[in-house]
Design a protein around this nucleic acid. Sequence first.
DNA 1: CAGAATCCACTGAGATACTG
DNA 2: CAGTATCTCAGTGGATTCTG
Lengths: 137, 137
Amino acid sequence: MAGTVVNLRNAVEPARCIDISKLDFSNCPVRDVMQQINGKWSTLLIECLSQKPYRFGELKRMVPDISQRMLTQTLRDLQRDGYVDREVFPTKPPSVEYRLTDLGRSLYAPLAELLNWAEANHDAVRAARTRFDEAAG
Amino acid sequence: MAGTVVNLRNAVEPARCIDISKLDFSNCPVRDVMQQINGKWSTLLIECLSQKPYRFGELKRMVPDISQRMLTQTLRDLQRDGYVDREVFPTKPPSVEYRLTDLGRSLYAPLAELLNWAEANHDAVRAARTRFDEAAG
DNA sequence: CAGAATCCACTGAGATACTG
DNA sequence: CAGTATCTCAGTGGATTCTG
């Protein structure tokens, strides 16, 4: 953990003769922060919660192909990183509401831009895939 | 494949009684486009190539913990989606250069904003993690 | 040098069943 | 309703070896 600090955004020049086991990537936000955001379900759930708070079951229905297990786990991870707040209402049966925190909303700004890009360029990407697959056979 | 079209960005209201197997997520850019960008190594490599073209071995040294296999595969996937161009120089031994395409550079604009956010809020995320872990025990 | 091919380990993630 | 607890498996990805 206490090895050379590697922050891809600072030093991207190819270095030689590095002992990988002594590298410390924890100061690289591209790895440490993005890894969670990059999770299979994270973006989907943040996108859902960007509208308004939702309950567990509602989120499950909004992302119907997520398993209960992964929903629980992803929400907890998002909560751990400070993007999501979890509020338990002592009703019977219990209900739990999830909402974006200030940090989560702040994250959503640039994230939404990226999603807008993805939406706007979806066709271009599909076209590129077709071209590539046809060229390759 | 020909089931209900699900685009999370259009209809995010929780729906009931859906047969998952009949859903078609291929029109949802949050899934179809982001899935590749979200890959473990994709962002790292795009960030590298945002500076200038690099060769295979250089990229390997810039991301020292990537395996040759994953480097090859991720670059091919990025090329397939149209983000990266691959140019082979008929030298001996051969050298291959990778560079961002116009589409790739266009993607890098919003992506870089997200990476900037990650960098700027890295400490906030780490603090949130500490808080969460201490609260949980 | 830039891969392709093979083998293998780990873990991400689904299915199911149970609980407060 | 909103989880937790197992069990299990498929796919991701690493290490190694081989080639133009």
